[in-house]
Design a protein around this nucleic acid. Structure first.
Lengths: 243, 243
DNA sequence: TTCTTTATATGAACGGTGTTCATTCGGTGC
DNA sequence: GCACCGAATGAACACCGTTCATATAAAGAA
C-alpha cells in the first residue's frame, strides 16, 4: 500500500490531490465564499477521484482534500464510506437510459442496458467491487431492475425467470467489470499485468498430462476481443429464457 | 545491551519472562518449541480466521497474533496480503473434486463443480471478493478450469463456447457468493440485515406508476429458497451451449 | 441593530491497517 | 570454537476511517 514516499520534498498525497483538484476548479470566477458541502458534491468529487486514480485510491481524506475540506466535514453529509459507495453506485445506475420495451428486439435491449452499466463501471476502475458489496435495494438499482424486468417480460419470459435472470445479469456485469481491469490491459502499458501473449506462453508450459486442454488450446482459451465474452455470456443468459 | 546468561542452568531474563508469560497463555498444551512458520501454516491460520470472523476481519496482524508471531514475520513467507489472498483462493480451489466427464450427465457435473466452489466460498464469508480480485491464473484455478472445460467439451460444446462459459460460470459463482451473505440472512439474527419480509414491504411502498412490476410482484421478485437462483442461472448458462 | 440558536466545519486526536528494516536469534556447517 | 545465513522481532512509517470538543457561520427573534 505504502508505495509513495513523501520524504523527498514531494508533497503529501492529500496535498497533491488538493492541488490536482484545484486545476479543474472554475479558474475564472474566484468566489470568495466556498460552495457549501453537499452529498452530491462529495459524490462527484469521489467519482472524479476514482476515474483518475482507481477505486482503491479512493479515500475519505483524499476526497476531503479535493474539496478543500476537512475529513470530518464529510461525515456531516454522509454516514460512512459504505454509504458513499452506495451513493456512487446509485449515481452510475441513474445514468443508464432504459429503452421502451420492444418485444421484437428484447434481447438486444437487455444486453444494451447491461452494456451501459458495464461502461459506467469500467469508466471508474474498480468501482464495481463496491456494487457487489453495496445495498442492492437503492432506488436507482431498483429502477434499473424494473427496466430490465420490463424488457424481459416483453420478450415473453415468465416473471420468475425474468427476475432471476435480471439478478444474474447484473451480478455478472459487476463481476465482469471487476476483473476485466487486470485482463490483458490493452497492450500499451505492458509492464504491470501480463499481456495475452505472456499468458498463452505460460499456459503452454503446463504439464500436458494434467492440463491437456489448456495446453493444447491456450490460444483459443484466451480469445475474446473487446467485449465478445460479455455479449456471449449475456446471450446465453437471456437466450434460455424463451424456449 | 542485554547481557546473556553466563552460568549454566540459569536462563536469561528475557527467556525467563517468556516462560512466565507462557504459564498464563496456554496452560494445557505447553509446547516447548514453536513450529516453524510456513506459508501453509499462515494460509491455514488465515482461513481459520476468515471462517470464524469473516473476510474483512482478516488482518496480517491478527494472523500473526493467532500464530503467536510478529506481523513482520509473515512477510518472510508471503510477499503481501494480495499474495496471501491468492494462496487462500488456491487452497479453496484445490479442495474441489473434479468428476470424470460423463457426456450423459455433463450439465449436472458442471453445476456440481460450481456448487462445490460456492460452498467453499460460503464457508469463508466474504472470501470470494478476494477471488474476484485475485490472479486468475494460479495453478489451482487453472486445474479447476481444465476440469470444467473437460466436462463442457464432453457435453458437446465447442472449444470457444466451453472456454467462455466456464469463465462466466466461475465469475458468477464468485459474485453470487459475495452477495448471498447479505441477502436474507436465514431469518435468525433478524437485526442486522433486512429480512425478506421487510424487503417485500419496502418494495410495496414504491410509487406504482414508476415501479409497476416491482410493486405488483414484490413477493415473487424476492423468491428463491436456498440456491435455487444459483442453479437456475447455471442452468441458463450451460443450457445454451448445446442447441 | 444585537442576541440567540442551530447547523456546519475544523483540527486534533484514537485505534487500526499494511509494510519495511535494523537488529537479534537459532541453528548448521566448517 | 566460529562464521554464516535464514528466520523472527519490535519498532517504526505512512496511511486509513471515524469521532468529538471546539470554533465558525448563517438565520431568526428581539
Amino acid at each position: 500500500m505504502a508505495k509513495k514516499s513523501t520524504s523527498r520534498g514531494i508533497v503529501s498525497r492529500d496535498e497533491w490531490a488538493a492541488q490536482v483538484a484545484a486545476l479543474t476548479e472554475t479558474p475564472g470566477a474566484s468566489r470568495p465564499r466556498r460552495e457549501p458541502l453537499t452529498a452530491g458534491r462529495i459524490v462527484a468529487a469521489a467519482l472524479e477521484l476514482v476515474e483518475a486514480e482507481g477505486f482503491d485510491e479512493l479515500t475519505m481524506r483524499r476526497i476531503a482534500a479535493a474539496l478543500k475540506a476537512s475529513p470530518g466535514a464529510l461525515y456531516v453529509h454522509v454516514r460512512d464510506k459504505a454509504e458513499l459507495d452506495d451513493l456512487m453506485i446509485g449515481e452510475l445506475c441513474s445514468r443508464v437510459t432504459l429503452p421502451r420495451p420492444d418485444p421484437a428486439r428484447w434481447t438486444e435491449q437487455a444486453i444494451d442496458v447491461c452494456g451501459q452499466l458495464r461502461d459506467q463501471y469500467l469508466r471508474y476502475p474498480g468501482i464495481s467491487r463496491a456494487a457487489l458489496a453495496a445495498a442492492p435495494h437503492s432506488l436507482h438499482t431498483l429502477r434499473l431492475n424494473e427496466g430490465m424486468l420490463a424488457i424481459l417480460l416483453a420478450g415473453g419470459a415468465s416473471l420468475r425467470s425474468a427476475a432471476w435472470a435480471a439478478d444474474a445479469a447484473f451480478l455478472y456485469v459487476g463481476a465482469y467489470s471487476a476483473v476485466s481491469l487486470r485482463r490483458y490491459p490493452e497492450e500499451d502499458a505492458g509492464e504491470q499485468a501480463a499481456t495475452r501473449a505472456e499468458v498463452v506462453e505460460r499456459l503452454g508450459m503446463l504439464p500436458p498430462d494434467r492440463f491437456p486442454i489448456t495446453v493444447a488450446h491456450a490460444e483459443e482459451l484466451t480469445s475474446g476481443e473487446g467485449h465478445a465474452r460479455f455479449d456471449f455470456t449475456l446471450g446465453l443468459l437471456f437466450g434460455g429464457l424463451t424456449p
